[in-house]
């Protein structure tokens, strides 16, 4: 279809498309859209879907060792939600004309990225608290503006996701709260988890604005509504008082309330570490990918068996209809 457009029609379509975006109209899968818009969305939504799925791995590490049956049930419910989030997002992405197989292949071959935060290990139970509180907290901060993204299926998926996320953050903070009210050792565990997860959580908002490749165009297309640095600042402002409330110290010597800005000033993010993990050299990059690939390969016979069963059932109904 694209090839039939003349050089005269294209600019016209593009300006009409931008006018719709500017008017806050939503774009739906079968509407005309610039190829770059489609590509940007496929990249962003699939990265997001992969992150939900890979994000189950660090938490899965603690399901069998949760300290009580209640905590175990809660953790399982949270992880199950993340699987659902992955599904909502893969489905939204597929409406843009890519297949699920293609998306999974790109994850498994290492071509597609997922959020680097999941390349850090979960060393003790407090890490599960820190993840819910900080990692899901940062994710929510990113996701709430995405509920208004210009692409309809993405926006609808994000609304669903956001509804489910708030329990994730609350259960995580509650774990930290409980530990911080516990024995000296338990409180130290909570502090240690905060120390390790703080900076990687700030990195979740992506590179600083001046180094962010895709930002300007995404803002123009209303896929993105706020810059990385704006969202990061909001997260810091929201989280610091929460840490204080449970007697934990944010591991940043330069952290200071700035009365003039009505915001916290904070230290320089270790960007070398960020790029190092993005480029595949974090503590768990190889393990995460290997675990995903294994899970997929080990599930192959199940998928095939279900398909064979469905075929057989369909044949049976067919022959029953014929004999009647």
């Amino acid at each position: 279809m694209e090839t039939l457009l003349t050089a005269f029609q294209l600019p016209d379509l593009e300006s009409r498309f931008q006018a719709r975006i500017d008017a806050e109209d939503k774009i739906e899968p079968k509407d005309w859209m610039p190829e770059e818009y489609r590509k940007t969305l496929i990249r962003q939504i699939s990265q997001h879907a992969h992150s939900e799925v890979v994000g189950m791995l660090p938490e899965g590490n603690w399901v069998t060792r949760a300290p009580s049956l209640k905590r175990k049930a809660v953790l399982l419910a949270k992880i199950q939600d993340e699987a659902g989030h992955g599904l909502y997002l893969y489905s939204a992405c597929e409406t843009l004309g890519v297949s699920r197989d293609q998306l999974i292949d790109e994850l498994h071959s290492g071509k597609a990225k997922y959020s680097s935060i999941f390349n850090y290990p979960t060393l003790n139970w407090a890490d599960i608290g820190a993840i819910g509180w900080l990692v899901d907290g940062a994710a929510i901060m990113n996701q709430i503006p995405l509920c208004r993204a210009s692409f309809g299926p993405y926006s609808r998926a994000m609304i669903r996701v956001c509804k489910e996320e708030s329990f994730h953050q609350r259960q995580g903070y509650e774990i930290m709260l409980t530990l911080s009210k516990g024995s000296k050792e338990q409180k130290a565990m909570a502090q240690d988890a905060l120390n390790r997860w703080w900076w990687p959580s700030l990195m979740m908002f992506g590179p600083s604005d001046q180094d962010s490749k895709h930002s300007a165009q995404s803002m123009k297309w209303k896929i993105k509504r706020f810059s990385n640095d704006e969202l990061r600042q909001r997260f810091v402002d929201m989280t610091v008082p929460q840490a204080e409330l449970i007697g934990l110290k944010v591991p940043d010597d330069q952290l200071k309330w700035n009365e003039e800005r009505r915001s916290y000033d904070f230290g320089e993010i270790p960007w070398d570490e960020f790029w190092n993990v993005v480029n595949g050299n974090g503590p768990c990059n190889k393990k995460r990918l290997a675990d995903r690939v294994n899970a997929h390969n080990e599930g192959k016979w199940v998928r095939e068996a279900a398909e064979a069963f469905a075929k057989k059932q369909a044949q049976r109904t067919d022959s029953k209809l014929k004999s009647n």
Binding site: Q80, L87, S91, R100, E164, R303, A306, E307, F309, A310
Partner: peptide, 24 residues
Amino acid sequence: HVGSLHAADAQMAIENARDVYTRR
């Protein structure tokens, strides 16, 4: 309409839809 999912057949689609779209 709430979304979509892949399934081997309609029965499995219903069961998966229950797990994905009606957990609450």
